[in-house]
Design a protein around this nucleic acid. Structure first.
Lengths: 190, 190, 190, 190
DNA sequence: TTCTAACCGAGACGGTACGTCCTGTCTTCGT
DNA sequence: ACGAAGACAGGACGTACCGTCTCGGTTAGAA
C-alpha cells in the first residue's frame, strides 16, 4: 500500500492521503487485528504519523471514522406499507452488513471504550442507525399502528445486534434477522 | 493497601494474595479508571507483578475475574408463579446491580475485546446470567405458557442491558427494567 | 539533571540527548554505584529509555562508552629522549588518571565481562592506550635501545595497572608508577 | 545432573548436596555462560534454592568458591635451585591451568566485581597464589640473588596473567609463560 | 515573480506500560 | 534439623506504543 505515490497538494489538505489513511485503518480493522498501532496505520497508508494527528485527535478517532465509513449501511429505509415487512427488510439488510463487518465493529467498540473521541463517533453512528429504524416505526404509527414503547423497541433491535456482535454466542444471519423482526413486531405492536 | 502484611504460605499458593489482587483490581475498575496498569494493581495489592502473572495469563484476565466476582448478582432466581412478575423481579434486581457496576462492566468489555483470556471469563459470566433467566422462562413453559423463541428472548433482555451499558444513551433504572420486563412478556408469550 | 530542557531536533539524532546520557552514565559510574539501571540513567539524563536503546545495543555499551570517554587520558605521549623518563612520565600520568577513575574502570570491566558490546568498547580503549605506550618503546628502539619483547612489556605495564584496579591490594600512586617504570626499563632493555 | 538421588542425611549437613552445588556451578562457569542464575544452579544440582542460601551468602560466593576449587592449581611450588627455572616451571604450570579455566576465571571476576562476598573469596585465592610465587622469590633471595622489588614482581606476573585472561588479546600458552618468566628474571634480579 | 505559510513523509523524542527474569526470603512437607 | 520444592516481594530488563516535535521538501496563493 505504501507504494501509491501521491502528488503533493501544496498547502491544501491532501485528500488522497486522508483516504489512504482511512482505507489502511479499515483494512487493519476488518482483518481482525487487535493491537493496531498508529505507526502501523501510517506505514500501511504510506503516510507520516503527523499527518494522522493533524486531522484526527487520537488513534481511536481514526479507527472509528474508518469503521463507520466502512459499515455505513447502504440499506435505504424500506417503505412497504407493513410494519412487519419494513422491519424484516431493514433488519435483514442490517444483519448482512454487520455480519460482513463484525471484527471491524468489535474493534470499533474496543476503541470507543478507551477513547472519548472515538466514543463520540460511535455514538453518532448509533444515533443515525436508530433514526433510520425510528422512521419505520414512526410511519407505522402514522398508519394507525399502536407502538407500545418506541425507544425500548429500538433498544431491543440494536441491543440484540450488538450483543451478538460482542459475545459471538449466536449467528447474525438472515434467519436471525427475520426472527428478531417478528419478535419486535409482536412486542412493539402488542 | 500495601500495608496489609500477609503471612507467607511457603510453597502453596497464597490465597490472601490472590484475594488482595482481585480486590485491588475490582477497586480500580469500579473507580472508573480507564488505563489500569498491572503495576498499579500490584502496588495496590501489595504484591509483586510476577505473582499476578503466575496465576493469570494477562492483565485482562485478572480484571475480568475481578469484575465478574464483583458483579456476580446475588439476585436469586425468583419464582412467583407468574412469568411477568418473575421477569420484573429478575430484571429490576439485575438492572440495579448493573447500574451500580456500570463502569466496571464497561472496563470488563474493553478488556474482553482485546484479550482472549478475558473474553473467555466474560463469556462464562454471560452464560451463567443467561442460565438464570432461562430458568424463569423454562418454568413458565412448564406451567403451560407458550414461549415463542427462548434464545431470542434472552438476547433481547441482555442485549438491551449491554446496549445501555455501552452506549449510555438511556437510563438503567427500575422503570426501565419494568418496561423491558413488560415488553419481553408481550414478545415472548405473544 | 532532568530539568535541562533540550530543544527537539526533528528527525535527526539529538546530540544533546546523547551527551546527557553519557554524562549521566559517567556520573553514576564515577560515584561507585554497583547496580546501575537503565531507568536510572534515563531518569538522570532526562531521557526516555528507548532513546538509550535506539543508539546503544545494551546497558553495558552505554556505560562503557561513558567510562572510556571519561577515562580518556589527556596525558600526551611524552618524548624526553630517554626511555626511562618517557616511561616514568607516561605511567605517572596514567596512574593518576586511573586512580581518579578507579571505580569507574572497575564498573566498566564488570560490564564488559557480561556484555559483548561493552567488551568491544573496552577493548578498543585498551588498544588505544597500548598504542600510546608502544610509541614510546618504538622511539627508544629507533634511538638504538634494544627492546627485548615489546608486546610483553606492554602487557606488564597494563597488567600491573589492571591487576591493582581489580584486586585493590596495593596503591596506584605516583611512587608505584615510578617503581613500575624502573622495573620495565630494566626488563625491557635488559 | 538432577537425577543423582542423594540419601537424606537427617539433621546433619548433606555433604553430597554441597558437592553437587559446587559441581553444578563449576560446570556452568566453565561452559562460558554469562547469566548464571541461582535457579539454574539449583536445578542443575537437583537442589532447593534454600539449600544454597543456607550455606552461602550470595550467588557470587557460590560461583567463586566453585571457580576457586576448580582452578586450584595442583602445581606444587618448584625448587630447582635456579630462580629462572623455578619461575619457568611455576608459570608454565600456572598458564596451563589458567588457559584450561579461562571462561571460569572471567566469570569469577565478573561476580567478584559485583558481589563483596565473591570478591573476598577471589582475593583469598589471589593471596594464596601470590604466596606460592613469593616463596620462589624468597628462596632465591636466601640463595643470595638480589630481588629488586618483590611485590612489584608478583604484580607483574599475575598482572600479565589476568590482563590476558580478561582482555583476551594474546595467548596463554607455554611460550608466553616462558617469555614472561625470562622477563621477570631480568627485571627482578636486574 | 517572489515569498511564505501550510502541508507532507520521515523519524527521533519523553514517557508509560508491558510481560519476563532474577534475587534472596519464607514456608510447607517429607526424611 | 535438614533438604526439595516453589511461592513471594521487589526491582531491572528490553520492547512496544502514544502523541509531540522538528527537519527538509513541495506547492498554492498572497504580496
Amino acid at each position: 500500500m505504501t507504494g501509491a505515490r501521491r502528488p503533493h497538494t501544496g498547502r491544501r489538505r491532501n485528500e488522497a492521503a486522508r483516504e489512504a489513511i482511512l482505507a489502511a485503518a479499515a483494512g487493519l480493522l476488518a482483518h481482525g487485528e487487535v493491537g493496531i498501532s498508529v505507526d502501523t496505520i501510517a506505514a500501511a497508508a504510506g503516510v507520516g504519523k503527523q499527518t494522522i494527528y493533524r486531522w484526527w485527535p487520537s488513534k481511536g478517532a481514526v479507527l472509528l471514522e474508518a469503521a463507520v465509513a466502512q459499515a455505513e449501511i447502504q440499506a435505504p429505509v424500506p417503505d412497504t406499507g407493513s410494519l412487519g415487512q419494513d422491519l424484516d427488510v431493514f433488519l435483514v439488510a442490517t444483519f448482512r452488513t454487520v455480519a460482513a463487518n463484525k471484527s471491524l465493529l468489535r474493534n470499533a467498540m474496543a476503541e470507543a471504550l478507551r477513547d472519548d473521541a472515538a466514543a463520540k463517533v460511535l455514538k453518532e453512528f448509533a444515533v443515525s442507525r436508530r433514526a433510520a429504524l425510528a422512521e419505520i416505526l414512526e410511519r407505522a404509527q402514522q398508519r394507525g399502528v399502536a407502538i407500545e414503547d418506541r425507544d425500548l423497541t429500538l433498544d431491543q433491535a440494536f441491543g440484540v445486534l450488538w450483543y451478538r456482535i460482542l459475545f459471538e454466542h449466536d449467528e447474525l444471519d438472515e434467519q436471525a434477522a427475520e426472527r428478531l423482526a417478528a419478535a419486535l413486531a409482536r412486542s412493539a405492536a402488542g
